[in-house]
Simulated assay, not measured.
Amino acid sequence: MDELDSAILEHLQRDARTTNRELARKLGIAPSTCLERVRALRNRGVITGYHASVDLRALNRGVQALLSLTIRPLSREVIEGFKSYVAELPEVLSVFVIAGSDDFLVHVAVRDVDQLHAFLMDHLSQRREVVNFRSSVIYQHVNSPVVGPLTDQGQQG
């Protein structure tokens, strides 16, 4: 990953709809070079896809929460089964399998706190493997729109 690759990634993370010609112009390189670099980043798995950011409130999902869950027994089969189950629920945005006192962190977006409560009761408390869960309502969420490589010193470079 060199400086040109990093610059390409930065521009595409800010606006993935940028045309190859426009991206090449911004970077001061030939369009053919730009296209070759972007393809190489995709082929190496650095660029994993393109997406549209959406306003969750516009989708009637005004309340977000992080759910911390503990499951038992801890086995690969139980973890994989629960992960697959919860990832398919329409309220779920992200599922993290984590280390520590909790086993899962689940990010959900729902209409309101009543729907959050119903989700907890209908989808989590009914599961035998779930022995404990806590919910934390998200008041604000700040997302870093551009992620770059870290140097050995832990700083972007």
Rank of each mutant, 00 (worst) to 15 (best):
V63S: 00
A99V: 09
A40L: 04
T18S: 08
G62K: 08
E91M: 06
G154D: 08
D152W: 10
L120M: 14
A7V: 02
I79E: 08
E3L: 13
V137I: 15
G81I: 12
Q126Y: 01
N132Y: 07
G157D: 06
H11E: 15
A40F: 01
L9K: 01
M121V: 14
L150N: 02
L35Y: 09
R57L: 12
S75V: 04
L35F: 06
N132T: 06
T70V: 15
V113G: 00
T151E: 08
E3R: 13
P90E: 13
R72I: 01
R25Y: 05
L116M: 03
S53L: 11
F96P: 00
L66T: 05
H123S: 11
M121G: 08
G154E: 05
M1T: 08
V78N: 11
A118W: 06
V86T: 03
Q155Y: 12
I29T: 10
A118P: 02
M1S: 13
K26Y: 04
R76S: 12
R127M: 03
L41E: 04
V54T: 12
L12W: 07
E10V: 10
V46M: 01
I79N: 03
L74T: 06
E129C: 15
L9H: 00
I71D: 03
R42A: 13
L41N: 09
A52S: 15
R72D: 05
H123E: 14
N143M: 10
L120Y: 05
Y139I: 08
R17W: 03
S125C: 11
R111Q: 11
G154T: 03
L59V: 06
T19A: 06
V54Y: 07
P90N: 08
I79A: 10
T151W: 02
D112V: 02
R76T: 10
L9F: 03
S136I: 07
C34M: 12
E3F: 06
R128A: 12
N43L: 13
D114L: 13
S32Q: 15
Q155F: 13
G100C: 02
V130E: 12
L93Y: 05
